[in-house]
């Protein structure tokens, strides 16, 4: 009952947001991507790239170099563990009891036996990963993906995923139950995890942002394919028929 009264206004906001951003016609790219806000998105992309070059990339590389791997893993595990209540809530909202149950088990095991979530004991016990978010919940509920959006600081997203991210700020029960300063541990660990990822996957990220001929288009394509793959969403590009093309001369 508490959740439903909490969700009603949020859903209303989300639905209004989706309705208000109806995409104009004729805004589909060569790759079949719905991107009516491309010119604005490209400006945000340049901002994000500048931010990455000046701050995130050097900080991430420094972080990975200075911080021992064990500590980096610990921060990542801690951040993931704090996300489990949110995964549990979203699993339940999707009617996906397995994900909800896994999230519960992981939270329980890693918090108790993994020193408050610093160690991922659950994986050692071969408990599968549990990952979902409110964007996926919206997908399960039948909400359309909507146009592509690149968000400042956060990066590539879709309209649906963006609404999901906003709602997820509120669906994590920890943000209601913890007092400060404990309530800042989650966000701090998340930032640590992001820096750590930027440092560890430096070559991959660099190749997309700085070595491709159109980093905006490349990032957009990679994000959308990967997101659809994670959601198990139908994606026609997953079935390219090799018999349907003239290859004479190549």
């Amino acid at each position: 009952m508490v959740t439903s009264s909490l969700f009603k206004p949020l859903l209303l906001v989300a639905t209004l947001g989706l309705a208000a951003c109806g995409a104009p016609e004729g805004s589909v790219t060569r790759d079949g991507i719905l991107d009516p806000y491309e010119s604005g998105n490209r400006k945000v992309h340049e901002f994000n790239r500048g931010l990455d070059r000046a701050v995130v990339r050097p900080a991430g590389r420094g972080f990975t170099t200075v911080v021992p791997d064990v500590v980096e893993d610990g921060i990542g595990n801690f951040a993931t563990n704090l996300g489990m209540p949110s995964v549990m809530v979203n699993g339940l909202l999707q009617g996906d009891l397995e994900t909800a149950g896994l999230a519960f088990s992981r939270l329980f095991i890693n918090t108790i036996f993994g020193f408050g979530g610093l160690m991922d004991v659950a994986t050692a016990f071969e408990i599968p990963e549990a990952r979902t978010d409110f964007g996926e919940t919206l997908y399960v509920w039948g909400v359309a993906e909507g146009p592509y959006i690149e968000l400042p600081f956060i990066g590539p997203s879709t309209q649906r995923h963006t609404v999901g991210r906003v709602v997820d700020l509120f669906t994590n029960p920890l943000s209601y139950t913890l007092d400060s300063p404990e309530k800042y541990w989650g966000p701090a660990a998340n930032i640590g995890q992001r820096l750590s990822d930027r440092g560890r996957y430096s070559d991959t990220v660099d190749s997309i942002l700085y070595e491709s001929s159109d980093s905006y288009a490349q990032l957009r394509l990679i994000y959308l394919q990967n997101r659809r793959f994670q959601l198990g969403q139908e994606d026609p590009s997953q079935e390219i028929d090799p018999f349907a093309l003239e290859t004479e001369g190549f």
Partner: peptide
């Protein structure tokens, strides 16, 4: 004729890259 890494498709990725090079 195609390879996917976590759903990211080599054919599409490279067509986007070549398309961008042609545009340039």
């Amino acid at each position: 004729f195609n390879m996917f890494i976590e759903g990211v498709n080599l054919l599409l990725t490279e067509r986007t890259e070549i398309g961008a090079l042609l545009d340039q």
